[in-house]
Each structure stands twice: as structure tokens, then as C-alpha cells.
Write a protein that binds this DNA or RNA. Structure first.
Lengths: 325, 325
DNA sequence: CTGTTAGCGCTTTCAA
DNA sequence: TTGAAAGCGCTAACAG
């Protein structure tokens, strides 16, 4: 048979021949692994340089059995999740680190019940690692262990990268309390999202510590739902003087509703968001929120998944106080 | 020797044996290429199904010699280009289509003088295709032909995906004229960007057709530069009654400067942007601009690069009239 | 420390 | 239409 394409690039064989060593030695010298004499290494490196040798990543990957892509999987109820700006930022960040490893990233949505999809991922021999966001606490396919990391979800034995959202929401709620608010309501995240639990708990803790009753209404991270939530809050607790939304989008929805009702922010009701989207600073009043290093979180998750180590890394959630609270 | 990892997945050999045919036939049946009898195909497909066979993308790629990743290369003066929201959107879009092909995408910035970097890309056997944005008109390495597409730059023999920015800017300038503006200035894009030429020409055409003098000041797509540009315009032509910015960011900078100076928009000066970033709708006055299907453009470029065909596709630039003009 | 050699899993040529 | 076999380019076990 013949080769599929022969743009005549030098191979390891050529380098080895030129350096006067075997391909095995050349391989060891180039990949840095295994014992090689200094002299041999020098020869090989020189030969590679002169020949303009470039390793073939695909061949290497096949021989090593590693896979060539990182898949970013977002478990979400909405099919539109892949259009979310945060998803895009995370993807770009991972695609940038992937480039330095000769890897690629691909993006996929997982339905809420994604067992089968996860098994599929685990079975794909082209997948070097998977970064899973929006996951619940359920165990992952064993075949994925050592090459998976989650963003947000705590799964035993699996690497995790996250933002300290409990601290962030806690700080925001604490700020509201410190500035005299006592009837503070929360628009929480969706129930199916495990990571939405921490902010909720943080809010409850703050309220409990202050001896205040919790006022919690459901949300789903959208502005639309934020408007509905604001409506519900005003109806159930007309004397509310502060609202904590666990997402800027939600907060913006709340803001719209309050504005339409003639409620002044922050004079009548103080409001905080979460995530610090660009719009947060532009609306009127400018939204107080917490900012997060999304690209760093995503990059950390990718690195962890690639490394195979199951270590966690959590990044700070830094409050950004503007006009709304 | 032994295999690097044996999670014991069935291989083509297993499928072939089970179907009672050779691996060659199994390969042909599964990949759909080459002559196979209906009976053989049926057997093979059945066997593959029963075994839960999943092809090994890396092995396939090695045998075929195709590469496994799409690299998105953004040529730009700023190192920070990879943090641009449009870059992130494009990346996510391509990462989504890549997923359906078992490919990955990686992201890289190219310096303005990127000859060497392009040769490097061409030499990388792991690169299935490259999508180049911000390129000038210069020829691409021959080794890249058939697996490259540009976004915006017209290079002979190379596939291109773009937005009809000439039509978009023309429409915006036309709108300003139609609404009575006669002293219309333009903040243009950076000189090094070939794609910035078309909007400039479109503006010049509109002005010339109307018998009006062109008023052009340099810009670089940033808000900072937009402020400087506005200052320059007011200084050189104090009677200006409209400003066309070739980017929303620039327009926002212009808006800031005008607001600080007490110039009313659009009463005193009408203003248009370009690209329709989320902020455009949120500022006050809401920015009139043109909206673009970024993810479609990027996906089209990726598909073209992958297909090897050199066909162009151009997407519409649709004016969005809000308050600023 | 080094060379030989057997794969990694699939595609494709070539002869039947 | 089919099967045998030769790679694709590199890694890693094993013997030296």
C-alpha cells in the first residue's frame, strides 16, 4: 500500500538516522522521557533542528493511547446553553490552553438525564479529557475517571474547579445587612443544578445568624424568571427591602420589574446580582454584584482533567459594589 | 511490546470476525466508502451494533492522514484579542460544529507579522484545518491550501466567510443621510486590518454619491480610541452632525466623550455603531448599529476549511435602529 | 544507556 | 466484491 499523503516531512526515522541513533533513542530524547545520554540527546536535538522535524501529534496520540480532544460538556435544561456568554468565555479559555498542548476542544450540551451521553463520551477513544459543568452529585462512569473534571459539582474522587460562590453570596448578603437591610429576599437558582445549592445555603446562614427569616423564591438564571420572581416577592412580602439574585441576568429581570412598578433601587429595595456580566455596569442603577475569573476556572478544570489528578481548586468570588446596593 | 491501555473495547478486527468478513470489508462497510455487497454491509453493521463498536478517531486520522483539530487563528496587534467576546462566540460556535465531526478546536493569536507562525501551522500534522481571522491579503503557505479559510480577508484561492460590512455601513450612512444629516464623520478601523477597508469604502461611496466631503479619523476598534476620535472630530469639524463608528466599542467611546462634553445624541449629533454588542441596547441613548451572525460566519468558515473547497459565503449586516440615530 | 521490534487501530492498495 | 498485507509515525517493552 501507499501513504495517504506524502508532503515529505521528516519523520523520527530520518532524525534517528541523521543523529546516528535508533528511533527509540530519538524518541526518548525528543519526548524527554526515558534514559538518554547527554551526547545522544545533543545529537538528536541537533538533527531534529537541522531537519526541521515536527512530531506527528496524531501518531503520538495513537501510540500512547491518549486522545486528542478535550470536550466541554454543559449539562443544562436549555438547549440554548451553548450560546451563553459564559460558556463561550470558558470555551475560548480552554481552547487557548489546549493549543499549547496540541489538543483541541469541542463543545456539547448534555441533557439533564445524561447517563447515556456520559457513557458515550467515556467510550470515545478520541477524547483526552472531559470538563463537565452543571453536573449533579451523581457518580461518573468509571471509564472517565482520571480524565474528567467538573466545574461546580462536587463528585467524590473527581477533580473540581469552582468559584467560592458561598463566600460571594454571603458577602453580598452581609453587605445588605450591614447597610441596614433586614427584610432580604433571595431568588435562587434551579433545583437541578447542584452548584446552586451553595449560594442558597450561604444566604440562609447569613439570615439565620442575624435572626432574620428567609424569604426564598425559585429562579432559573434567566431575566424572564427574574421578573416573575420580583413579582412574587412583592406579593408575598410587600415590605421587602433587599433582593439577592444568584445571577446578573435574574437581577436585571428583577430590576426591570421594579422599575416598571415604580420601586426605587436602592432607595426602596436594594438589589444584588452575581457574575458581573458587562451589562451589570451599564444599567441604571449600576448593579452591585460579584465578579468571577471564569476563564481561570475553566482553564484549571481542563488542566486538572488532563493531569488526571483529582485535586480541587476554588477561586474567589469578589463583591463589586456599585449603585444598586 | 504491550498496548498502552486496554480498556478492552472491541476493534474493527472483532467486528470483522463476528460478521465473518475481513477487516478491509468491515472498514469499507462502516466508513461507507468503497464497494461492499449489501449482505456484507448488513452483517457488519449488525456485528458492530451488537458489540457496541466505536471507531477509534485517532487511528482513523492517522491512517487517513487528516489531523484532528481546527485551529482558530486571530491575527491582531493586541495580545488581548483572545479575550474579545466575538472571539469567544466564534470559538464556541466552531467548537460546537467540531464536536459533531469528532474534531477539536484550539485558539491562537497571530502577531501582525505572522509568516513564521503560519508556516508552523502548516507544518503541524495534527491540524485538520485553520480558520484565519484578521488576515491581510497576502498569500498563504501552499501547504495550507485546501484546509484553510479566512474570516474577512479575501485571499485568492482561499475560502472566505464574511459579513457584508460594506452594505451594513452603507445602510447606516444612508440612514443618516436620509434623516437629514449632511456633515457625517467616520471613525475607521485599523490600517493593518484588510477587512476594515470595505466599510471605509462604503462610507466614502455614500458621501461621494451625495456630493458630500468625507471626514475620516483613525480608530482601532477600542472605546478609548473612540473617545480620542470624537475629540478630534469636534476639533477639526465643529459642525459635524453625525458620526459613524465601525465598531460598537468605538461608538461607546464616542458616546462617552460627547456626553462629557454635553453634546446631545442624537439631537446634536447622531451616532451609529457596528456589531450589536449587548451593551449597545443598554446604554442611553440606545445605540443604533448593525447586527451580525457571528457564530454562523465562524461555522461557515470552519466548514469551508474542512471541506477543502474554496467557496465564499457572505452573511448580511442588518441595521438595528435604536435611539442614537 | 541503547537498539530491536511489536504493536496502537484503521485505511487502502493490489491481486484475486 | 473481497481478503491479505503494508503501512500511517510514534512509543514502549524487553534484551542487551
Amino acid at each position: 500500500m501507499t501513504s495517504p499523503q506524502r508532503p515529505d516531512r521528516p519523520g523520527l526515522t530520518d532524525v534517528a538516522r541523521r543523529a546516528g541513533v535508533s528511533v527509540a533513542t530519538a524518541s526518548r530524547a525528543l519526548s524527554g522521557a526515558g534514559p538518554v545520554s547527554a551526547a545522544a540527546r545533543r545529537e538528536v536535538l541537533a538533527a531534529a533542528g537541522e531537519l526541521g522535524y515536527r512530531p506527528h501529534p496524531v501518531a503520538r496520540s495513537l501510540a500512547r493511547g491518549g486522545g486528542t480532544r478535550i470536550v466541554l460538556a454543559f449539562r443544562d435544561a436549555r438547549a440554548s446553553i451553548l450560546e451563553d456568554p459564559f460558556v463561550a468565555r470558558a470555551t475560548a479559555a480552554v481552547a487557548t490552553v489546549a493549543d499549547t498542548c496540541g489538543l483541541g476542544v469541542s463543545l456539547r450540551r448534555l441533557p439533564l438525564d445524561g447517563r447515556a451521553a456520559l457513557d458515550e463520551l467515556a467510550a470515545d477513544r478520541g477524547v483526552a479529557a472531559v470538563v463537565l459543568a452543571g453536573h449533579d452529585r451523581s457518580a461518573l462512569p468509571a471509564a472517565l475517571h482520571g480524565r474528567v473534571a467538573t466545574i461546580g459539582a462536587a463528585v467524590p474522587g473527581v477533580a473540581r474547579a469552582d468559584v467560592d460562590s458561598a463566600a460571594g453570596v454571603g458577602a453580598l448578603a452581609g453587605h445588605l445587612y450591614a447597610t441596614g437591610r433586614r427584610r432580604i429576599a433571595l431568588v435562587r437558582g434551579p433545583r437541578w443544578l447542584a452548584a446552586a445549592r451553595a449560594p442558597l445555603d450561604a444566604y440562609v446562614s447569613v439570615m439565620r445568624a442575624a435572626g432574620l427569616p428567609a424569604r426564598i423564591v425559585p429562579g432559573d438564571f434567566t431575566a424572564r424568571r427574574g421578573r416573575a420572581a420580583a413579582s412574587e416577592i412583592l406579593r408575598r412580602w410587600p415590605d421587602t427591602d433587599a433582593i439577592v439574585a444568584v445571577t446578573d441576568a435574574t437581577a436585571l429581570g428583577v430590576l426591570q420589574f421594579l422599575a416598571a412598578r415604580g420601586v426605587r433601587v436602592p432607595a426602596d429595595i436594594a438589589l444584588t446580582g452575581f457574575d458581573d456580566i458587562p451589562l451589570a455596569a451599564a444599567v441604571c442603577p449600576a448593579l452591585s454584584t460579584a465578579t468571577h475569573p471564569v476563564e481561570e476556572v475553566a482553564a484549571a478544570a481542563a488542566r486538572a482533567a488532563l493531569s488526571g489528578r483529582a485535586d480541587d481548586s476554588v477561586f474567589p468570588s469578589r463583591p463589586v459594589l456599585r449603585e444598586s446596593a
